[in-house]
Nucleic acid binder design. Structure first.
Lengths: 187, 187
DNA sequence: CTAGTACCGGACATCCATGTCCGGTACTAG
DNA sequence: CTAGTACCGGACATGGATGTCCGGTACTAG
């Protein structure tokens, strides 16, 4: 993608629909660097786009965040598609995503009421549910474990990672993983 | 405590050191209602005290928060003092405090770097450590569990409660408790 | 009573994020 | 070439939080 000419203050409609993609990419960076609560306008600045274009494409921050993390959810769905995936794998993948940015789970847990966010939450729940029912049928997971437990675990895991210093994250995830593995094990 | 005469805009030094206590009490209410990030000035308003007095007694929000939650920590220390207290009891007490306000754990986990907060954290850790070593000696807790695991569990527990709707908190705490009990059990 | 002191309350200046609005530009059609 | 359109960038008005500053009041000492 060649840089657009930034010398003139106003470049007109030439920027085209690429602006939307640029905003999403910029938002991903900004969220990773400063968290989900970073100033909305910082996204526009990072994208090299005017405030107006930002609000034209995304009326509020949730709209943008959902657009960004749609992609994360797609990754999770795709990753857990194979028949032999486990809850452990899911946790791994969540950790991997959280290493880059914890904003996704922050979004899911911070305001699950918003319908747009809720739809992501439902899809995430479906992923967890599918993995859980299969693992239970194999006896790899205790009968007493419910989907809510898996959701709680992923939420706690990601939240802990979000809070931890980046340098501490491997240690945190290791510890949390051990804790939840023990908790999920058949009695 | 009789209400002070609020008709005149300025009451002079008569208010005395009672202002400090009033601010701490007000802060406790405000934190419980709106969380730790409530406007600092809201505390002054709630206490019926001027902005000036607020900043005179507490140069920044951390100073006030530490003063407020000193009391919570004292409660935990006192509660876990008897010889027969367990980690389960500690979790219970944390839950009980979190039902009223989750701001305490929010403070501990949100900025553990501040030396004033860190000193609270160290005392909390001491409480957990004492309980853990005793329970391990009884074989009530797995040998593989370390203090960090207990701290992580309390942090996760309180954070989950903080995020949950107040109506959902009993359910959340029940579920989280079950999870951690299983995780801590001897193998 | 009077002068001095210590402390109080709240106005206010400052800063930052938000969301709107508009002059201006690039493209399109005729 | 010209007129019209769609869209862009960034200035700006607004609102809220923060921390400072000062006129004023209650108490104390002489």
């Amino acid at each position: 993608m060649p840089d657009r000419d930034l010398r003139k203050p106003n470049r007109g409609p030439a920027a085209g629909p690429g602006n939307r993609a640029a905003l999403i990419a910029a938002a991903r960076d900004v969220y990773a660097a400063d968290g989900l609560t970073a100033p909305f306008s910082a996204v526009a600045r990072r994208a090299g786009v005017g405030q107006g274009s930002l609000y034209r494409h995304f009326p509020d921050r949730t709209a943008l965040a959902v657009a960004v993390f749609e992609e994360n959810l797609g990754d999770l769905e795709h990753f857990t598609a194979p028949e032999d995936r486990t809850i452990d794998d899911l946790l791994d993948r969540v950790i991997a995503q959280a290493m880059v940015s914890t904003a996704f789970i922050t979004l899911l847990t911070a305001n699950p009421h918003d319908p747009r966010v809720a739809s992501l939450g439902i899809r995430f729940r479906a992923v967890a549910s599918r993995l859980l029912s299969r693992e239970r049928s194999f006896g790899h997971v205790g009968e007493h474990i419910e989907v809510e437990d898996v959701l709680m675990a992923t939420g706690m895991l990601a939240t802990s990672l979000a809070r931890a210093e980046p340098g501490q994250r491997p240690e945190v995830s290791r510890r949390a993983r051990a804790l939840f593995r023990a908790a999920f094990a058949p009695r």
